[in-house]
Design a binder for these strands. Structure first.
Length: 419
RNA sequence: CGGGGCGUGGCGCAGUCUGGUAGCGCACUCGGCUGGGGGCCGAGCGGUCGCUGGUUCAAAUCCAGUCGCCCCGACCA
């Protein structure tokens, strides 16, 4: 499938005329996404591959802390939302079915999961529990903007913890927090964990994970050993830092957040358990969100250069972008074809092969735009010396691999880049 | 929701002020040349000018309404 002549990968030379954010421009130009309406985006195959990699990293780290994956519906009866007092939220999409029954399109899933937990959990013996899903969220945003950074429909990993008391919640919260650090590190982001307002979610504590990026809607105040959301600190740009240095305020993208909910949802929805003394108590909850699309856009905002995207290797749509400069029928093409088959086997499909009959400029420019970690070029010039050329997208280091050993050396180099 | 801007072949735009044959670049199709950074020549395809109504002999152009999209702000699980 990843031969370009058989792949749906439309790149464009010019960014959308009205795009501002770098990630917005590059994601459209690099053929990762296309717009359907305001705040509504389709993932094209390359973009979806990258997002699935982010999701897979999240899955692995959630499962590693005992958080189990499930799946809840987006379309939900309004009843639970009325009980929790969130039915009146303006951003909540509301609709009704043919019988006139009120429904909502969920913006998060506290109501749904708490509804189920209320029916299934009876005893302290059933706790603690941590569950998550990766599901679509719908929000009637007053102003969608910046490509994937603020949309009306988006995917979220939302996890929920259920504990018998505050100590249990603290433990779940810490586990999630540590998992978040591993997730964002593995995704190759620069990020800060900051305290946040509890906001409309209620509850007793919250943190946000903020990633510096020019297109960010938020701002963080940074100083040596210090990071804070500007909304919750009095420190301003140029102030002396708490641990020395000077405060710098930079725009940032909120890539995740974690909340101690307490009984904000368990009480109105009747999610209780019996403790050892036989007395009924509300379950103590936490919720933990990550926006994979924001992780993707942030990776681009933070890594891109003037030629295009520079993916962290962990979430690149493909590990290798193989370019054949020869066209079909020429002998150099056969060498490229063979290398493609070798790489495909060695890298279990992690190769995009540009086998188009386009000119070299177009192919090489597209490869820079897409930003896969390793570009391998098979052309007459190199082949005359018995080599293929490889270059690392980040940093631009060039390599010359003997044709016969090219696949093995490319794989070895990738292992080094990943390690 | 306030302010600003934009809707014209697939994409990017000109034409609108001053009503009268819809145009340019790119892309696309066909033929040929080219072949290490979006190359060249030639021939083509493709648009009820967002939508509705009005004015007029005549509307992309003027008037009214409406829908959509973008940017700034407000807002932001």
């Amino acid at each position: 499938m990843p031969r370009l002549t058989e792949t749906f990968w439309p790149t464009v030379r010019e960014p959308p005329a009205d795009a501002e954010a770098l990630s917005h421009k590059l994601m459209v130009r690099a053929g990762l996404i296309r717009q359907l309406g305001a705040g509504l985006w389709t993932y094209l195959p390359a973009g979806w591959r990258a997002q699935r990699k982010v999701e897979q990293i999240i899955r692995e780290e959630m499962e590693a802390i005992g958080c189990q994956e499930m799946l809840m519906p987006v379309l939900q009866p309004a009843e639970a939302w009325e009980k929790t007092g969130r039915y009146g939220i303006e951003e909540l999409f509301k609709l009704s079915d043919r019988k006139g029954a009120p429904l909502v399109l969920a913006m998060t899933h506290e109501e749904c999961i708490t509804h189920h937990i209320a029916r299934e959990v009876r005893s302290y013996r059933d706790l603690p529990l941590m569950l998550f899903h990766i599901q679509t969220k719908e929000r009637d945003e007053p102003r969608p903007r910046a490509g994937l950074l603020r949309t009306r429909e988006f995917t979220m990993k939302d996890a929920y913890s259920f504990d018998r008391d505050e100590e249990g919640l603290d433990r779940s919260y810490r586990l999630q927090s540590e998992a978040y650090e591993r997730i964002f590190d593995r995704c190759g982001l620069r990020w800060y964990r900051v305290e946040s307002d509890v906001g409309m979610m209620g509850g007793s504590g919250a943190h946000e994970y903020m990633a510096p990026g020019a297109a960010g809607e938020d701002a963080v105040a940074l100083a040596p050993g210090f990071a804070a959301n500007v909304e919750v600190t009095s420190l301003r740009d140029g102030d002396p830092g708490p641990n020395g240095g000077t405060v710098e305020v930079v725009p940032a993208i909120e890539i995740g957040n974690i909340f101690k909910l307490g009984s904000r949802y368990s009480e109105p929805l009747g999610a209780t358990f019996l403790d050892e003394e036989g007395s009924e108590r509300p379950i103590v909850m936490g919720s933990y969100g990550i926006g994979p699309a924001r992780v993707l856009a942030t990776a681009i905002e933070q890594g891109a250069d003037e030629r295009g995207i520079v993916w962290p290797t962990s979430i690149a749509p493909w590990q290798v972008h193989l370019v054949s400069l020869a066209k079909a029928g020429e002998p150099e093409r056969e060498a490229a074809d063979r290398l493609y088959e070798e790489l495909r086997g060695e890298l279990s499909g992690e190769v995009l092969y540009d086998d188009r009959d386009a000119g070299p400029g177009e192919k090489l420019t597209d490869a820079e735009l897409l930003g896969c970690p390793l570009q391998v070029v098979v052309g007459r010039r190199g082949l005359a010396d018995g080599i293929v050329e490889a270059s690392e997208r980040a940093g631009g280091t060039e390599h010359r691999f003997p044709v016969a050993a090219a696949a093995a050396q490319a794989v070895g180099l990738l292992q080094k880049l990943n390690g």
